[in-house]
């Protein structure tokens, strides 16, 4: 008996350690980001770093202005949400409200499969198919633009938006729909005035998580966004999102130099942005659960 008890205790400890490992890693990453990123603020000044319009990290003297990089990230994220919101929410509505059992069985795994395609494959597809297409379509000098990156990122974020929205829709209690039908509402009225508002916060969570997927995506934007550190004025210009700048430059930045610290500072800011996104998503989804009386 004691042997069994000991065994149980060991298992308990193993799983406790595993569960806390993520916390440990998160704290470690945050510490490193702050330690390696903050020195640049002393050198350049936080506001100048954030609002600077030129990114010439290796010139002499260097310019560390990440405004073009932040706007690059923002543009492709906004563009991506214009693609993934209609696609993701629309397919969730179809799956949950209209599709028959067989269609659901086929469509759901297919949409989720989109999420498992490696980002470098998306990038390659974008580079060889979408880029030349956009170049020809708009008669541009180059097809490597924010539009191009937005389209691909939007497709990549669609499964996230779709599956979370679909979950949210399926949590709407049957009684809500029945009550709506009982007072004489038709299917469309029930959908737009009862079901979507009830699932609204769940859908918003999905959208926000989809956007944080898009803003953090690296390989794809590195390959297809063009990489020009300019402040974008239209979607048909090349951009250089923050992730692409870090990925492209980290390998060549002398360790411990200003450029190295500046890249860590970009990573820190990116981390804070996605952190805020996730907190907002968490708050909204908690409200949603309370609203439907699912949990406290």
């Amino acid at each position: 008996m004691t042997y069994r008890k000991a065994k149980e205790k060991i298992y308990k400890w193993i799983f406790t350690i595993l569960a806390f490992a993520s916390l440990f890693f998160l704290v470690g990453i945050v510490i490193v980001l702050f330690k390696e990123g903050t020195p640049i603020f002393k050198e350049v000044g936080f506001l100048k770093f954030i609002l600077g319009r030129h990114w010439y990290p290796t010139s002499n003297p260097p310019d560390f202005g990440i405004m073009p990089l932040m706007l690059g990230s923002l543009w492709v994220t906004l563009g991506a949400s214009m693609v993934c919101v209609p696609l993701g929410v629309g397919s969730a509505l179809y799956l949950n409200e209209i599709a028959g059992f067989k269609q659901r069985q086929l469509l759901k795994p297919v949409i989720e499969l989109l999420a498992s395609i490696p980002s470098v494959v998306y990038g390659f597809f974008g580079l060889t198919v979408v880029t030349p297409f956009i170049q020809k379509l708009f008669g541009l000098p180059t097809g490597m633009t924010a539009l191009n990156a937005s389209l691909i990122l939007g497709i990549m974020a669609t499964p996230t938006v779709c599956s979370i929205s679909e979950d949210a829709l399926s949590y709407v209690p049957r009684s809500f729909r029945e009550a709506s039908f009982a007072v004489g509402a038709n299917r469309w009225q029930t959908l737009t005035q009862v079901v979507i508002p009830a699932a609204g916060s769940g859908i918003s969570t999905g959208i926000i998580l989809g956007m944080s997927r898009a803003i953090g995506e690296t390989m794809t934007v590195l390959m297809i966004a063009g990489g020009a550190a300019v402040i974008p004025h239209t979607f048909l210009e090349p951009v250089r999102p923050m992730t692409a700048a870090i990925a492209a430059e980290m390998g060549e930045a002398p360790m411990g130099g200003s450029h190295y610290h500046a890249l860590f500072a970009i990573a820190l800011i990116l981390f804070l942005i996605t952190f805020v996104f996730n907190i907002i998503a968490e708050i909204i989804s908690r409200k949603f659960r309370i609203k439907l009386g699912l949990s406290g």
Binding site: Y56, S59, N60, T142, G143, G227, A228, R240, A248
Partner: peptide, 24 residues
């Protein structure tokens, strides 16, 4: 040592540069 025009497409590898130039 003068600065490259900001609108330049900055690429991470020799291969990426050849890919774009051969396509554009």
């Amino acid at each position: 040592k003068e600065k490259v025009v900001p609108s330049a497409l900055m690429q991470a590898s020799n291969q990426a540069v050849s890919q774009i130039v051969s396509q554009t």
